[in-house]
């Protein structure tokens, strides 16, 4: 499976967050910090679970803390996805 690119992760996050907030995706900035969004902790965890299901791997709840904006988290997801894909290829080689 191809690794997920940062822009894909960013678009996924923006679409889901916009849906939760009831706004257009264009109104959600990639630079936005999660703790500035009108998501409470319950919604944030539900979003994290949905995201892990989409990614196919566990991201760790602290990821939202260490990568606190949409853009930073998307970059981290891409990096993590690439590492996992590479490890998968190495294991099957």
């Amino acid at each position: 499976m191809a690794p997920i690119k940062a822009v894909e992760a960013q678009n996924w996050l923006i679409e889901k967050i916009a849906h939760r907030l009831g706004v257009e995706p264009s109104e959600v900035s990639p630079e936005q910090y999660f703790d500035e969004l009108e998501l409470d902790s319950t919604e944030a965890l539900i979003l994290a679970g949905e995201m892990e299901n989409w990614l196919g791997f566990e991201l760790g709840t602290t990821a939202l803390w260490y990568h606190p904006s949409i853009k930073e988290l998307a970059a981290h997801i891409a990096e993590e996805s690439a590492t996992r894909t590479e490890a998968g290829h190495a294991a099957s080689a």
């Binding site: 319950t42 539900i46 979003l47 679970g49 949905e50 709840t61």
Partner: peptide, 16 residues
Amino acid sequence: LAADTPLPGLRKLYDT
């Protein structure tokens, strides 16, 4: 919860 709440999302909340 909203009607479209995904089960994996609820699972994450439960696990935490």
